[in-house]
Computed example of a mutant assay.
Amino acid sequence: MNMNVNNNKFNLSFTPATNMEAYQSLIQENPQDMIASANDLKTFYEGHSHFKSDNMFINAFQEFEKNVVFSPDGGFFSGDFSSLTENLTYRQLEELTSKMGMSMFLFECRKGSRCSESPPGSGIKRCVTSVNSEELCCYCDPH
């Protein structure tokens, strides 16, 4: 499987990560054109009229915004992509995940994982795998 990512496809200054090590490095680099915060996500959405083409997608994006979590240090932490995967084309989803620093390969590898604190209140985070879920966690190792 070819995991090379064409960063020029979406005019990015960086190559979207294909694994968690590369994603963590990318967060440290902090490219200016990467969506690394809720404000970046809102700016991206507002600047792309093709993402605001119909009410169904507008509602889906608003639902995604409600549950997406970014790390205080920058970068995507976790979120439920189901409202978007049901309403975006593959290319639109690829553009969004790429600008968030994740290749579609990494997105697919991490899909179905969600961050859980175990035991509750302990501060110990771990990934839990959910079959047939569009949740995604980029914080901890699901294995």
Score class of each variant (00 low, 15 high):
residue 76 F to P: 00
residue 102 M to C: 05
residue 8 N to E: 12
residue 9 K to F: 04
residue 76 F to Y: 02
residue 51 F to R: 02
residue 112 G to Q: 05
residue 26 L to V: 08
residue 51 F to L: 08
residue 60 A to M: 03
residue 60 A to T: 01
residue 129 T to L: 15
residue 120 P to L: 08
residue 55 N to R: 12
residue 17 A to W: 00
residue 100 M to C: 06
residue 63 E to W: 11
residue 87 N to A: 06
residue 29 E to V: 12
residue 64 F to Q: 09
residue 49 S to I: 15
residue 21 E to M: 06
residue 132 N to P: 05
residue 141 D to G: 08
residue 20 M to S: 03
residue 5 V to H: 06
residue 86 E to P: 10
residue 40 D to Y: 05
residue 135 E to S: 14
residue 65 E to F: 09
residue 3 M to N: 13
residue 54 D to R: 08
residue 54 D to F: 13
residue 94 E to N: 07
residue 23 Y to D: 02
residue 87 N to Q: 06
residue 52 K to F: 08
residue 130 S to D: 14
residue 46 E to Y: 15
residue 60 A to P: 01
residue 23 Y to W: 01
residue 93 L to Q: 01
residue 47 G to S: 09
residue 13 S to A: 08
residue 124 I to H: 14
residue 77 F to N: 02
residue 8 N to D: 10
residue 12 L to Y: 04
residue 79 G to E: 01
residue 1 M to A: 08
residue 41 L to S: 08
residue 14 F to E: 00
residue 11 N to M: 12
residue 71 S to G: 02
residue 29 E to W: 09
residue 137 C to H: 02
residue 32 Q to T: 13
residue 37 S to H: 04
residue 122 S to I: 07
residue 33 D to T: 04
residue 136 L to K: 00
residue 9 K to H: 05
residue 112 G to N: 08
residue 68 V to Q: 02
residue 46 E to N: 15
residue 139 Y to M: 15
residue 55 N to W: 11
residue 21 E to P: 07
residue 2 N to Y: 15
residue 2 N to M: 12
residue 12 L to T: 02
residue 101 G to Y: 00
residue 73 D to W: 03
residue 15 T to A: 11
residue 84 L to D: 01
residue 38 A to Q: 13
residue 31 P to I: 07
residue 99 K to F: 03
residue 29 E to Q: 13
residue 107 F to C: 08
residue 90 Y to S: 05
residue 75 G to V: 04
residue 15 T to H: 03
residue 37 S to G: 10
residue 103 S to F: 04
residue 47 G to V: 04
residue 28 Q to V: 06
residue 89 T to N: 03
residue 79 G to N: 00
residue 131 V to Q: 14
residue 71 S to F: 04
residue 74 G to M: 00
residue 59 N to C: 13
residue 81 F to R: 01
residue 29 E to A: 10
residue 46 E to H: 15
residue 30 N to E: 11
residue 103 S to N: 05
residue 62 Q to V: 14
residue 113 S to T: 12
residue 5 V to Y: 00
residue 45 Y to V: 10
residue 95 E to R: 02
residue 32 Q to M: 12
residue 83 S to L: 05
residue 111 K to L: 13
residue 141 D to M: 14
residue 66 K to F: 09
residue 41 L to N: 09
residue 114 R to S: 11
residue 122 S to Y: 04
residue 93 L to I: 01
residue 22 A to R: 09
residue 92 Q to M: 10
residue 85 T to E: 14
residue 18 T to L: 02
residue 91 R to I: 13
residue 141 D to Y: 10
residue 54 D to T: 10
residue 2 N to G: 15
residue 119 P to G: 03
residue 29 E to G: 01
residue 109 C to V: 14
residue 56 M to P: 08
residue 73 D to M: 11
residue 33 D to E: 04
residue 115 C to A: 12
residue 17 A to H: 00
residue 68 V to I: 07
residue 38 A to T: 15
residue 122 S to Q: 07
residue 104 M to S: 03
residue 115 C to T: 14
residue 18 T to V: 11
residue 92 Q to E: 11
residue 45 Y to H: 08
residue 118 S to R: 14
residue 128 V to L: 13
residue 117 E to W: 05
residue 69 V to Q: 06
residue 33 D to H: 02
residue 31 P to M: 04
residue 107 F to S: 02
residue 132 N to D: 15
residue 113 S to C: 11
residue 106 L to C: 04
residue 30 N to A: 14
residue 61 F to L: 12
residue 123 G to S: 12
residue 88 L to V: 13
residue 20 M to E: 05
residue 8 N to W: 07
residue 117 E to V: 14
residue 23 Y to H: 02
residue 37 S to V: 09
residue 80 D to Q: 01
